[in-house]
Write a protein that binds this DNA or RNA. Structure first.
Lengths: 230, 230
DNA sequence: GTCCTGTTTTTGGTAATACCAGATCGAGTT
DNA sequence: AACTCGATCTGGTATTACCAAAAACAGGAC
């Protein structure tokens, strides 16, 4: 029926079961019956989850779920699968993302190609159209930031940052229901773009810092504080 | 015989085969026979590799290897498995690692706890002993940097950085065969530690920058240039 | 009741086999 | 050279079976 679609379902089920059962998950055979798939399918899913350190399979004993799971691979997977993260994890992710974006802006100012500028300009134009039509720019906001990272010409950097973007899909949609936020965000994007074109790394970086301050506070305000520092 | 140990072997085999065969890998049945394991075992390994985007499994067609593989998960896995990376990947990884380390030093200066200081001091003491004994501090060098990241109190940050450290295991051992490098590195570590204790974020960060400049140039000098910028 | 002991059940690890249906490829035809 | 059609290959899935160690249980000794 569905291909790898059982993975998220199994992952969610494991987390729930483990929470209610002290870290211990149902056996492979139970999972297979529960989801009406073969044991082989379950084992494939478990192998992936184990490779992400979400679970630990102890031979002849059982499946144990890593409750204090803060690995990057796991976080990226949860984000993709729509599995909710703990507030501490979100807080940490926001902090790391911020670090990346600021440095990316700085590097992009030096390395961006003409194609990169074109892509960014395209995003800005489409944003303008959506705002004029009274729609939210949530997807375009992400794309703008993504294209900046891409402009660093570092594909590994891009890969890492992409994982972080999936984290905020749902909430971003809510955030950009507010027309004022759309306009403000778009204006700041335009400023960043102009600094980028001028290849002023320091200015681009500074603008990104203040831009993120606004966006990120929306996230962290929803959470209990977790960072010891400022 | 071996548990998940076939994964690295299969991964390496797939890469070799694909290189010699234009991206196409052997079939599951062939792989199973080649490694003398069941098809189920092969499929578990393939599921993991697919989740890392190292390969793509096309139903009823075959297994295709992502040659231009620059995903973070894949890179981390290759590093762990001892599979050599392309120079471009190493270059990118070094750059990203540098970004992380510098920011980590800055954050650690603000957030480090007494336990963090203790751990760092312990690493420094053990380094001193090894140097006095005329041994290389390769493992301790990594541990020092890792403990700084840990001192940011951001476990996600730590998770990401840990993946990068695995990247340099082998070469680091060679690097620290030179007694002068050992001494120089250790001296710089001590300075960083002192700045950290003073909670001087700017100084710590600056010291880390110059410390990394030396270490990192060793890496990048071995590679063809790949970064468009400085 | 508590502790020890031996048996039964459960569990992950592994293998072997079979079937499906689309893709892939090649021989034969036009 | 282009097309057609059937044999083959391939990944996807399910079923069954066996192993050995861990875990759970039952029963007896103190």
């Amino acid at each position: 029926m569905q291909g790898q679609e059982i993975l998220p379902a199994i992952a969610a089920h494991l987390l729930d079961s483990a929470r209610a059962n002290g870290g211990k998950a149902p056996s492979e055979r139970h999972l297979a019956e529960h989801f009406s798939v073969s044991r082989g399918q379950v084992r494939e899913a478990l192998a992936i989850l184990e490779s992400m350190q979400v679970i630990e399979r102890r031979a002849k004993s059982g499946i144990y779920v890593n409750t204090d799971n803060s690995g990057f691979e796991a976080m990226a997977f949860f984000a993709r699968a729509g599995i909710p993260l703990e507030s501490r994890q979100i807080y940490e992710a926001v902090e790391v993302r911020k670090i990346h974006e600021i440095k990316a802006a700085e590097l992009a100012a030096v390395r961006a190609t003409e194609e990169d500028f074109k892509r960014l300009q395209d995003v800005l134009e489409r944003s303008e159209q959506r705002i004029a039509a009274g729609e939210g720019i949530d997807a375009l906001d992400q794309e703008f930031h993504l294209q900046i990272v891409r402009a660093t010409q570092n594909t590994l950097f891009l890969s890492i940052c992409t994982s972080f973007y999936e984290l905020g899909r749902q909430r971003l949609e809510v955030y950009f229901r507010d027309p004022d936020r759309n306009r403000k965000s778009h204006e700041e994007h335009k400023q960043i773009y102009e600094a980028l074109v001028k290849r002023d790394a320091a200015l681009t970086s500074a603008l990104m810092v203040s831009h993120l301050r606004g966006v990120m506070s929306y996230w962290t305000e929803l959470l209990e504080p977790h960072a010891p520092g400022s």
